[in-house]
Amino acid sequence: MTIVIHHNPKCGTSRKVLEAVRAAGHDPVVVEYLKTGWTRPQLQALFAVAGIAPSEALRTKGGRAAELGIDGPDADPEAVLDAMVAEPVLVERPIVASPKGVRLCRPAERLQEIL
């Protein structure tokens, strides 16, 4: 069973989730998305399987989303995706994909739904 974690090593929640995946006996594929970036199709697929809208995976902490005008409930999903592709840090983390589904694991306990 392959598990992929879209990970930011500077994030405490992301580190906690990665540790939990490994503690459960898995050797995950770790994608440091701040280095690799995102593609629009990749984000669309992850969000579709997770059952979330782009705005639900938007990192609003730090204020960049507000600066771009994409943090409100009426934000255009296409604009949110464009911003996420241009600035990968705008995607909340970690996102974990397993054969049982995809979850934005914030809070970290959401990981248990797909292990």
Rank of each mutant, 00 (worst) to 15 (best):
G63F: 14
L90N: 05
T36R: 02
E87A: 13
A50Y: 02
M1I: 00
G72K: 13
E113F: 13
V49C: 01
P77C: 00
Q112K: 08
E78R: 08
E92M: 15
L46V: 08
F47H: 14
K61I: 11
P28L: 06
R59A: 05
G12T: 03
K16R: 02
E19G: 10
L58P: 07
D76K: 13
A23G: 00
K10Q: 05
V29P: 00
G72V: 15
P28D: 00
R64F: 14
P88A: 13
V21M: 10
S98R: 09
P9C: 11
A20M: 08
P94M: 03
M1N: 01
H26I: 11
E92L: 13
H26R: 08
V96S: 02
Q112M: 07
E67V: 14
K100I: 11
L81A: 01
G101K: 07
I52K: 04
A108P: 01
L115A: 14
S55G: 12
P9G: 06
L81Y: 03
V91W: 02
A50F: 02
I95C: 12
R93T: 09
I5M: 06
D76A: 14
G63Y: 11
D82H: 09
A50V: 01
V29E: 08
I52S: 09
R110A: 07
G62F: 14
A79K: 10
W38A: 14
S55D: 10
E87Y: 04
G25Q: 02
L68E: 11
V91G: 09
A48I: 11
V30S: 08
L81S: 03
M1F: 01
V4Y: 07
G37N: 10
I114E: 10
S55C: 07
I3A: 05
I95F: 08
H6M: 13
E67F: 14
P94W: 00
H7P: 00
R106V: 10
H6S: 13
A23R: 00
I114A: 04
E67K: 12
L34D: 02
P41V: 05
L81K: 01
P88N: 08
V96Q: 00
K61S: 15
E78Q: 03
V29N: 02
E113R: 09
W38C: 11
G37V: 12
P28V: 03
E32G: 15
A53E: 09
G63A: 02
L111M: 04
R103D: 15
G101Y: 04
P9T: 14
I70K: 07
A48V: 05
R106A: 13
Q42P: 12
V85E: 01
V85F: 02
S55A: 07
P107K: 11
E67Q: 11
R22S: 04
A57G: 11
A48K: 14
R103Y: 08
K10Y: 01
G25H: 00
E56I: 14
P77R: 00
V31L: 15
P9E: 15
G37C: 12
A65F: 06
L46S: 09
G25E: 02
S98P: 04
T2V: 07
A20I: 04
R40L: 10
L43P: 01
M84L: 11
R15V: 10
S98G: 11
P99H: 13
E19H: 09
C11L: 12
E92T: 06
